[in-house]
Every structure is written in structure tokens, then in C-alpha cells.
């Protein structure tokens, strides 16, 4: 039991920034975005970064992805694939007007967290299933991008300057991801240097998986009642 609590403590520290905020674009940010008419690069960039840094579903997934990535080069590769995936669907769906159901997309995002955690405890390997981790992170990146897009599409954004504003938002998302990743990589390095890491890794991933399933169930319930 003790090692599981150590895992919980470390996960909490790593994901702390996101726990302080609610997710989604709401309140004064939402009203700001709706009255914008024309190109406003920096505000959109800031809001993109804020959305990423405070988005616990994205951060949980990233934590799962880099859990066992010891080399910075691998972190960079996986983060780039994730960024490529979510940029494609974020830009594509807002600019082309594709619309997905926000609850269903967020449910799949919850599942992506559970999937990654299950892979981290060696679940797929033990079942004899081999999955290309890079393809999976790209694929789930596409879904996370849809999730980002649905939050923006709930607002009525002015088409005036939208393309450039979306570029700003997207760049902001990447900068936010870089900031969150930097902090996470540092904290993971710190955690790995403690003797408890090996022992608490399974417990931490079970917690990640639980969180993923809770997010998924929460969104499915939301889909059911709306």
C-alpha cells in the first residue's frame, strides 16, 4: 500500500498545475473570444497555452506517455507526434467546420489515458498484443485536437481573422505543452532517482488508469443526460 501512496504523491505533484483550474474555455476568456473580431495573435496564443497547461486530460495523457521515456530524444519524438496529431484536427475542424460531440471526444480522451496507463503496466504485452506506441500517440493526438476544437466551437467565434487566430491558439497550445512537459520531465527525473520509483510505478499507473476511466465515465454520463 505504501508504494501506491508514494505514486499518488508524485503524480499529484506532477499534475498539480492542472488541479487548480477547471477545464474548458469559460468565464471571461469565453466572452473575450466571442467579442474578438479580427486578428488577435497574442491573446489567442496565451489562451491556447493556458488551455493546455490547465487541461488535466491532456496532462494526464502526457504523463502516461513520458512515464517510461528515459531519453529526452524519445520525449521530443512522442511529444512532436502528439503535437502533429492534435494540430491537424484542431486547425482542420475549426477552419473547415467539422463538429464532433464534445462529450464523446472527451470520453475517448479519458480512454486514451487509461490505454496509456495499461500499456505502462505491461498489459498489452502480457496479452500478446504489440502496438506501435508512436502510431498510438499520433492517433490519440488527433482525438485530443478534436477535444480542443470542440471547446472553441462551443463559442461563436467571428470568422474575421479566424485562420490566423487559430494559428496563434495552436502555437500557444504547443508552447503550453512544452512548458508542461519540461516541468513533468524534470519531476519524473527527480522521481526516478528515488528508490521508490520502481516500486510505485505500477501503483501510479493504476491510479492514472483509474483517472482515465473516471474521465471517460464522467463524459459518457454527460453525453447520456444531454
Amino acid at each position: 500500500m505504501k508504494r501506491r501512496w508514494a505514486g499518488l504523491a508524485w503524480l499529484t505533484i506532477i499534475l498539480l498545475p492542472s488541479l487548480a483550474f477547471a477545464h474548458g474555455v469559460a468565464g471571461k476568456d469565453a466572452s473575450y473570444l466571442q467579442q474578438v473580431d479580427g486578428v488577435r495573435l497574442i491573446p489567442f496564443l496565451y489562451l491556447g497555452a493556458k488551455h493546455m497547461v490547465t487541461g488535466y486530460d491532456h496532462l494526464l495523457f502526457l504523463a502516461g506517455v513520458i512515464f517510461f521515456l528515459y531519453r529526452l530524444r524519445d520525449v521530443a519524438l512522442y511529444a512532436s507526434l502528439f503535437a502533429l496529431g492534435h494540430s491537424l484536427t484542431l486547425m482542420g475542424s475549426v477552419l473547415l467546420g467539422w463538429r464532433a460531440n464534445a462529450h464523446l471526444v472527451d470520453a475517448v480522451i479519458g480512454l486514451s489515458v487509461a490505454y496509456k496507463a495499461y500499456e505502462n503496466i505491461g498489459g498489452f504485452k502480457a496479452l500478446g498484443i504489440t502496438l506501435d506506441g508512436r502510431l498510438a500517440v499520433l492517433g490519440f493526438g488527433l482525438v485530443h485536437g478534436l477535444g480542443l476544437a470542440t471547446k472553441l466551437q462551443e463559442l461563436s467565434l467571428s470568422p474575421n481573422g479566424l485562420a490566423l487566430n487559430m494559428v496563434g491558439f495552436n502555437v500557444g497550445v504547443e508552447l503550453g505543452q512544452l512548458a508542461a512537459l519540461t516541468l513533468m520531465v524534470l519531476l519524473f527525473a527527480l522521481w526516478r532517482s528515488t528508490p521508490s520509483f520502481e516500486r510505485s510505478a505500477r501503483g501510479a499507473n493504476l491510479l492514472l488508469m483509474t483517472a482515465g476511466f473516471v474521465l471517460c465515465g464522467y463524459q459518457l454520463a454527460g453525453y447520456w443526460i444531454t
Binding site: 495499461y118 502480457a126 516500486r199 510505478a201 476511466f213 473516471v214 471517460c216 464522467y218
Partner: peptide
């Protein structure tokens, strides 16, 4: 990864535990 090699039974137990915990929390 941990002191025990991940076996089929052990990982499925982990999956089951997580699902159960998630269901209870939900």
C-alpha cells in the same frame, strides 16, 4: 518495471482494479 514481471493475470487484475475503482468513484 516493478519487482514482478508483468504477467497476464497481474495486468488484468490491475485493469479490473482500476475499472472497479473508477466505477466506485463515478
Amino acid at each position: 518495471m516493478s519487482e514482478q514481471m508483468p504477467t497476464r493475470a497481474r495486468t488484468l487484475k490491475g485493469l479490473g482494479l482500476s475499472l472497479l475503482a473508477a466505477a466506485v468513484l463515478l
